[in-house]
Design a protein around this nucleic acid. Structure first.
Lengths: 233, 233
DNA sequence: AGGCGTATTTGCGCTGAAGCAAACTGCAGG
DNA sequence: CCTGCAGTTTGCTTCAGCGCAAATACGCCT
């Protein structure tokens, strides 16, 4: 049974080149679980008891303000670590994680963290790099939010989605999981109405094709130009 | 000479409780330097060769978009680590650091990182916690930017500044370094005009006193209420 | 095939905050 | 003391994008 997981993990960037021994060590303390679509894997402000690695599927990470506004912080793709509050010395999760589609994930109890980190340094390094990347991305988003118009922000968000979670189809690159206008609005801090209008406009311009809970980018280059168009000075 | 630094460091949170031996180890590879006001300590996209600890003063961390917009990512206070790209496995700095006032900082060559981390685990842990805190803060800022009105954002920014870098005076709590309307605008993604208007309004309401490159909050509680006022649903 | 709930589209009016323009003020330097 | 400049204030205009409302459209379930 661990055989399946082993080959899966060995294929992940960040774990490539690990010895079989190290992999066994990593897997011996892990537990695998299925999460059906819309299942909540952990919840915001809940006690952080485990950390996770997504084997398959897509996960939506959502933050809720005290006032009740939701914001989609990011989507987790296959092969990514998530819920690693422990690595940052935190005791609660800063966001909720919800399966965007049926998912399979490995999880470790927090107690395994120190052990894994010291016995498999590459594992710790990988985690810290994940965090660094995420900090970088988040800071870019702040910049985007403060300097870009809504149209550019939405274009960037859609591009990010197709780059990270795109699946090639006959018509173009399609986002690999069901996503609503509302979701995109919650990623960019706008309203589903504005998102809908812009997608329609892009569809008229032949840049995207979209349907119910589905977005396909037919002309990524054109969309990139949209995302780069500067606010008029 | 290291004596001065030792007592300074020993007083910092995150370093409290370290043995004298550990402190000596940390300091032996460090070098101390003065940076006059407006000096650039490192620059965005420059090769990351060192990491730093601010001993005294305040540092402004600035990001610039390809299009030339500036955004103040944060201010560094005394006792904080900064420029720790190495801890995240990065080779360039994602932002520039400029002395907001005359500063003194310790720096280590990147080569010292692995050594320090393995020989003084508390040092590494402190760095990772710093990063975690910063990620958390940054994520909060994204939320703020996407859900709050300009007035609330500016109120939050000012509150953050007085909480983290406030100095008590007869009139209230004053931000401890020179800060312009433009600076506050660049923290919140607005314009200096809007910032000026709001500060004036708050001054009329008796919440703040402000002058040239100076902001004093006389009624923090009232400002907090402003920052919490919800967007009308 | 029909019905239903959820997701999407689209029109319209309003307003917060940006853009533009101009006047004012406090401080540093001569 | 005077001058100049950087920083600040304030009025007016404009418009991107939100709130509101209503009409469709799609897919699922029976």
């Amino acid at each position: 049974m661990p055989t399946l997981d082993r080959s899966l993990i060995a294929g992940l960037s960040g774990f490539a080149g690990l010895s079989g021994e190290a992999l066994d060590l990593i897997l011996s303390s892990a537990r695998s679980a299925r999460y059906p679509k819309d299942a909540e894997i952990f919840s915001q402000d809940g006690e952080a008891t485990s950390f996770f690695l997504l084997l398959s599927g897509h996960i939506r990470v959502v933050r809720t303000t005290p006032a009740g506004d939701q914001l989609i912080a990011r989507y987790i793709n296959e092969g990514e670590l998530f819920g690693i509050a422990i690595a940052m010395g935190r005791t609660t999760y800063p966001a909720s994680a919800v399966a965007a589609v049926d998912c399979v994930a490995l999880s470790w109890p927090n107690g395994a963290w120190a052990d894994l980190q010291s016995r498999v340094p590459a594992f710790g390094a990988s985690a810290y790099q994940t965090i660094g990347t995420r900090l970088q991305e988040t800071q870019s988003r702040v910049m985007e939010m403060s300097t870009q118009q809504v149209e550019q922000r939405i274009a960037s968000a859609v591009l990010r989605l197709v780059n990270q979670s795109g699946r090639k189809t006959a018509e173009g690159i399609e986002i690999d999981f069901p996503i609503t206008r509302q979701d995109i609005a919650e990623m960019t801090g706008t309203t589903l109405h504005t998102v809908s209008r812009l997608l329609s406009a892009w569809e008229d311009a032949g840049i995207v094709k979209s349907g119910r809970q589905k977005v396909t980018v037919t002309d990524p280059h054109a969309l990139m130009l949209v995302s780069e168009n500067r606010r008029r000075k």
